[in-house]
Design a protein around this nucleic acid. Sequence first.
DNA 1: CTGTTAGCGCCTTCAC
DNA 2: GTGAAGGCGCTAACAG
Lengths: 337, 337
Amino acid sequence: MAQIKDVAKQAGVSVASVSRVLAGHAGVSESIRQRVLAAVQELEYRPDLAARRLRSRQTDTIGLIVSDIRNPFFTEVSRAVEDVAYQHRLRVILCNADEDPEKEALYLDLMRDENVRGVILSPTFATLTGFRSHDYPFPVVLVDRCDRDTAADAVVLDNIDAAYRLTTHLIENGYRRNIFFYGTTSATGRQRHEGYATAMAAHGLEVHAEALPATVDRARAAARERLRRRPLPDALVASSGLILLGLTEALRETRIRFPDSVALAGFDDLPWTRLVEPGITVIAQPIYDIGRAAIELLLQRIAKPEQAVRRVVLRGELVERGSSAKRTGATASASMA
Amino acid sequence: MAQIKDVAKQAGVSVASVSRVLAGHAGVSESIRQRVLAAVQELEYRPDLAARRLRSRQTDTIGLIVSDIRNPFFTEVSRAVEDVAYQHRLRVILCNADEDPEKEALYLDLMRDENVRGVILSPTFATLTGFRSHDYPFPVVLVDRCDRDTAADAVVLDNIDAAYRLTTHLIENGYRRNIFFYGTTSATGRQRHEGYATAMAAHGLEVHAEALPATVDRARAAARERLRRRPLPDALVASSGLILLGLTEALRETRIRFPDSVALAGFDDLPWTRLVEPGITVIAQPIYDIGRAAIELLLQRIAKPEQAVRRVVLRGELVERGSSAKRTGATASASMA
DNA sequence: CTGTTAGCGCCTTCAC
DNA sequence: GTGAAGGCGCTAACAG
């Protein structure tokens, strides 16, 4: 492996000149520049990253800690982050915390060890509580999850509003006994629960919510359990795409048809929500944009460490499909009895 | 930030002793070990990774280059790889090459720069052609994709056999004009095409295959195009989960019912294939096991660089569902597993 | 068993 | 504008 002094020898200059040319510093004669570049080519020289990092006390790496890589939401976010990061010559270390606060802490530690320039994080509720970007040696941008008063840059959906609109849509279509299944490990789940509860209360309806770990399996089990009891609810509502999948599976397994017997709605406009007849009503999130906004926020924060905390709030779009189709009066009253 | 000499001073020993204790070397007196550990705790000392890597010319990192992170197959593989890697105190750099040979080359270069211990790669066909693990400064384990004669460790499905069985199943259930949609950018797609073609030929049937880039959009477009023409084929078969999704969407959009008008089958037992009525017949891959086998192979290779090239071939399982129901019994498609 | 010391490859003053 | 030299924090060889 060629190193900088080999290049210097080959070009007949000092290592300092080579270093300057490589760093793109001004004030190097054109003739030296050419000779160095030629020598680099010839020797196929590649700088040793470890040495460079040791010397400069800096890396060209950012961290991305997602809460569940199996959630398509986060794979799409990570694509966006990587796209933009690599355009800026930054590498990305992607870690999957599996909704586990301990793993989160572990990875945050790892980021510190790696001396990353910054981190994008979708924290569990436990980590978010009392979270302050200042407690870390690198800037942190939160994505998907944050509290109103969290002291950190963040990119989130307007969760309360989105859940409010989704719930109101159900109510207006004649569904009144609506159960909300939501994940408690994330602020997002809680906020969506709040939006749901507000909408229900606004119409004088009773709140029925089931808190659970946000996995497909747990959602399926909880829904199955509830669907065994009578009377059936009017609608099942999910606070996330993973939970929505679990609810849908439970409905299928119990052979309860939607929306005839029970309506269904949730979050994330994933391909399968369109394929499952008669289509599932969802709040569509601008996922790629969320990821892109996060990395751009981080880039700006790295450039200007002292600027005021910023928050990007994006709006979800209600996509109405058959699973929440307007109810006929007859069916509604029958179920209420 | 405390450094090793601070720890040494605090513990009243030399830096060498501190280094030895931290490296877990034998031959350090218990009393020194205790004092060092105490000092480390007290000062919250964390070794500088850059310095350590520079000095030892080694990292504790492996690379994982997947061809498309949006493909659930690869997110599951990466989970398995990360699980095992972190158990062994190895970090993982995950890169998404997007089925692009140039990006693959770029990331392989990056791996070299990072001085990783080894790489797990799912190569495009272009990269696989003439691929030899020996051409890289680190061991490479191929996952999901490899040729019969590729000189590298690999973990793959028995693709030819799986596609053969899937196709035979369709033929036996009465479907004869079966079109195979497959991705050409991967060896896997081509091998599955081979299995399909062999099965068709074995029954004296004509081969109808459509080669395309393995994305949902391209598959949907190709299928839509084909479904516009008459006569309709008997069945649509996909060489991957992403392509299967595209075919399913095309069927829905053109309102062609399966299996009544056209049967459907493909690869990867993803949740949605069960939800879409009347269920889609697939070859289920042991995805997590594939990922785990890959990282274990890499670990062994790192431990014994000279051992003979190994190949792990796993078997796919045929999951029969309504989308390929026997053609005789009219519309007996309502059964669900 | 323990300590002293010489680099790992690079960047960056500092002289010239 | 260019080169010589020191040192980033750590490990490993060598000496005691």
